[in-house]
Design a protein around this nucleic acid. Structure first.
Lengths: 208, 208
DNA sequence: ATTATAAGTGAGTAATCACTCATAATATCA
DNA sequence: TGATATTATGAGTGATTACTCACTTATAAT
């Protein structure tokens, strides 16, 4: 019988599964890393936050850096897949609205993770590559056909694709990562509102 | 007579001025910090890069953190002032073009500094404040009257100021900090071209 | 029950780090 | 030319850190 199955009246400690421990450590590591940066965090502190002994970390991850990679690597793609069921009946404009909202929500939901990713991407090549493949690259390749469709239909102007996307991504990223911190925007604004404003600006511009 | 003044034929070491030494250290520190981050850099390494003894660093800066602050603090405002001579004859649109170009050049010229600043702003309040006051805040306050003038003249739509600026700043920052790295944009494109494209997009939008 | 395996622990370790300080080198002043 | 002040030096220091390992505890297999 599996020992974790049913409560019996013996008063004995029940151990979490190895997988659960791993998750505890990952969760704690994300928290600490996001707070203090990779080099500013200690394995002792992470262990404390995860409520495990320091040695336990190294049973699950052979080095601190491997822990960082594990924190960043897998989660990224989770939220991206949804969009891949192509709503092929959408107009390009409708697609952009959906995409924008999805990304803004994704960023808000994983703010610590993404912030950490951008910060550490500066110093670790692996992270940089992961960031490009995971967030920026995926976004670009999903958008591209819709962009081109929009141009064909005459809905969009035939602007150069990559520079245009760079600006678009910049708007989104900056909103999620720095917006509320630096510009003191009212946080009670919903993502919905913010997304609508950004889309309006992106599609129609500031000029009358 | 000042000892550093004229070359004489005695073969003796000439000491740099204290100020010059300070600059050497600051320059080296910027390089190393930008490369590896604050916590990833060691004072020994900075000393080596500056070609001074490690102790010398601490004669000029009492702590490593003070060195970081000194690296970031003063330079920021240098490039900003130019714009303050108000070209009051400009149209709002012309102002935005000038502003955009100025900021993009400023970012390109100080890429390491600004990249470092954004990275460390996550972890040090002083840096965060300095970033807001120095780059983002200044930009916002310079733009505002021109934005309002543009709305009054009927050149611009009456969009909410801060969210609009957030997107604008996002486009600029992302271009400077991540654009070439992540999106593989052709680096032979001049800033001029990039700025013109960004302004076009910002003013008129993607939609036809 | 007994044994075998997997998982957890935390004191210990070698390396590294920011910072100090006694000494030396250079510059300034009398 | 000395006397004094300023700046530079780098070996030394205590604190911190990532990682190890001998050992304990829990679970699975026989």
């Amino acid at each position: 019988m599996k020992s974790n199955e049913v409560s019996n009246n013996r008063e004995i400690p029940r151990r979490k599964t190895a997988e659960q421990r791993r998750q505890d450590i990952l969760e704690a590591a994300l928290k600490i890393f996001a707070e203090k940066g990779y080099n500013g965090s200690t394995t002792a502190e992470i262990a404390r936050a995860a409520e495990v002994a320091e040695g336990t970390i190294f049973r699950h991850f052979s080095t601190k850096k491997e822990l960082l990679i594990a924190v960043l690597e897998p989660k990224i793609l989770e939220g991206l897949i949804k969009l891949d069921k192509e709503y092929s009946e959408d107009t390009p404009t409708e697609f952009f609205r959906r995409f924008l909202k999805n990304r803004m929500e994704l960023i808000k939901d994983n703010e610590a993770l993404i912030r950490l990713m951008f910060a550490e991407a500066q110093y670790h090549i692996e992270v940089r590559e992961s960031l490009f493949k995971g967030i920026l690259g995926q976004g670009i390749s999903i958008i591209r056909p819709w962009f081109e469709k929009g141009v064909e239909l005459g809905d969009f102007r035939a602007l150069p694709f990559l520079p245009t996307m760079q600006s678009f991504m910049g708007m989104i990223m900056f909103y999620g990562l720095f917006g509320n911190v630096f510009l003191g925007l009212s946080p009670e604004k919903t993502i919905e509102e913010a997304a609508d404003h950004m889309l309006d600006l992106f599609l129609h511009g500031l000029a009358r």
